[in-house]
Design a binder for these strands. Structure first.
Lengths: 160, 160
DNA sequence: ATTTCTGCAAACGATTTGCACAGGG
DNA sequence: CCCTGTGCAAATCGTTTGCAGAAAT
């Protein structure tokens, strides 16, 4: 994520917080920095670890209390991918309509955007009498390269 | 669900079980009947209640141990819709490619199928170098009728 | 007879919450 | 000052598991 984007997130969120009569705290700042500092997906626990490195005083409870705020503000998206634990995706700020392809072999998550899919989804939703607010396409699949060569970028030649 | 379909599920699952060296028990029979007796989605807890009505001896543990078998057999699908609790969908036997539209106002879930979406998903996935195994489109939206008239099939005229 | 299944209750892991104090506006 | 935010630890909730007996093949 570029620096300007990060600043944008910071400001938008500041707006969101003051708009709700909420306060700017060092803990929240650290959590935001940890969440939007990279484009990686993360779990609540992973976010806690990242945030703690920035500001030691951040606690698990505060992370769990801040996550819903970030989601509500629209900056962070909660993903329900096959996993048992909830995963958060900070990339919707830059790519608001992206979707996910999950490799069933190595569990790597690939993000993709597609205008046609976007249009088709809107079309279908309207036909059903609804106005879409949130759309998620999740596809699972096998890596062709892995199947053909027995190895791919994510799978070392010799598996354990 | 029609009676023949129910029988088909019963047989397919019997095949699946014996194929894995697993056994037919009254509890599993009851759970299957409860799961595929209607087209309703359900949670583990709801399935337990339905199954208990058919066969009192069914316990929560057995429900939780049977659900993964049904999912693995391909007959039942686990859905990750916004809800915190996992929801199961028995309708993939009859409609293997259907998707979900969720009303953000009343949380009603509408199932839909679309061939174009199906084709587009396959196309995109192949372009990314993968062979699709599982595809899920989940759309959230507002009911137009509700917005226009202040009421709709799922919302009584006077809200509490 | 052998192996899988079962119910029970305890264990578990992710998330939430009550509390008393800290700190932002 | 007032009210929101915090860390801590206990509580909660859905789900999983160890065990000894029951049942299917």
């Amino acid at each position: 994520m570029e620096a300007d984007v990060f600043e944008q997130v910071r400001e938008s969120l500041q707006e969101f917080l003051t708009g709700k009569g909420l306060r700017r705290t060092v803990q929240r700042e650290a959590i935001i920095e940890a969440a939007f500092g990279t484009t990686d997906h993360f779990t609540a626990e992973e976010l806690l670890l990242k945030a703690k490195k920035i500001e030691t005083s951040v606690s698990r409870a505060t992370v769990y209390r801040t996550l819903p705020l970030l989601v509500e503000s629209g900056m962070l998206r909660e993903l329900d991918l096959g996993s048992d634990t909830k995963v958060y995706d900070p990339n919707f700020v830059e790519h608001p309509t992206h979707n996910h392809l999950i490799c069933v072999d190595c569990h790597k998550i690939i993000e993709f955007e597609d205008t046609n899919m976007e249009l088709l989804e809107n079309c279908i939703t309207r036909r059903l009498g609804f106005s879409p607010t949130n759309k998620a396409v999740t596809i699972e699949g096998h890596c062709d390269e892995l199947k053909a060569k027995g190895t791919c970028r994510n799978h070392p030649p010799a598996k354990p």
